[in-house]
Amino acid sequence: MPPSSPDHPAHSAKPNYLKWLLGQSSRQGLWSLPLIIALAIALGLSVTTQQFTSTGNLFNLITQAMPLIITAIGQMFVIVIGGLDLSVGSVISLSTAILALGGPAYILIPAVFLLAALIGAVNGIVVTRLNVHPIIATLSMQYIVLGVTRILRPVSGGTVPDIVITSVSGTLLGIPLPVFWGIAVLLLSWKLLHGARFGLHLFAIGGGIASGMEKVAHNFGVAERRNILLAYVTCSCFAALAGVFLAGRIVSGDPNVGLLFELDAITAVAIGGTQLSGGVGSLHGTVIGALVMALLANGMNLTNMSPFIQTTIKGAILLLVVGLQSRKKMGL
């Protein structure tokens, strides 16, 4: 009998039809189970409540889910390369604070994205050049950015430019604008992940790290450091975009609006089947993960259940989904 090394557990040799059915071996990760969960919640809600399927509620659901969807997609870019970005919550708060500073929108909006790109670039440089673990690098960035945000805007207030408010609350051809936000974000992230070499390189880097061969992508000619840096920049810019959306929704700057958002984003990405060890993940899985969380929140509102049981259910779903996809390697 061959020895079962920690990298190759003996039980993985047995055929597991449940795993096969759930698409365990795919590079996209386990996304069918969360899809079933999301559909089950939606079905349950449409049977038990009348409001759920109303057009108003569905548009409302999209508006509620949009910041999480945007942040989670950004987070996925970093998780696919085996990293983690804990600074996105602070970046969201910072973006709303900057938009509420007062001034013309054509200065404020570029400023938000420039600053976010800068934060992402610092994260990326600290991780790739200075050899710091991503959790630590982005955790300290979270503290620093939150501190700066609280200096800019100690309590919530101020007004954001009109164009930001209209872009969230307005309608086009009778359809609320958040729907178009969603389409634009999906197109952009699909282009980055599947329509450009960038996404392919990210999967190559993450796959190498996940299989314990850190330099493998580099040896195949992928500019590892540059792509990792760009992944952090992408993640930060997506967080800034979520911040712009939230600023338009709450019409002011709020230093606490992004608090713990990074954990929600990581939860959504993980529910969607993306592996934290890198190399395995998908865009549609991430969107499904964010939708599961939004559906839970929406359902609790409609059925008047305690909002606190929602947290427990969220954690239980997360445990169930990640518990079903065991990896070859032990670790973070």
Binding site: P9, L84, I135, L263, I266, T267, A270, Q275, L276, S277, S306, F308, I309, Q310, T311, T312, I313, K314, G315, A316, L318, L319, V322, G323, Q325, S326, R327, K328, K329, M330, G331, L332
Partner: peptide, 24 residues
């Protein structure tokens, strides 16, 4: 160690469950 699930996610999920339980 046995299921080889991501340590960040498992312990985060346990924390989420416990916090939600206490708040409930």
């Amino acid at each position: 160690a046995k299921r080889r699930v991501s340590a960040v996610i498992v312990t985060l999920a346990v924390s989420i469950v416990l916090v939600g339980f206490v708040q409930y």
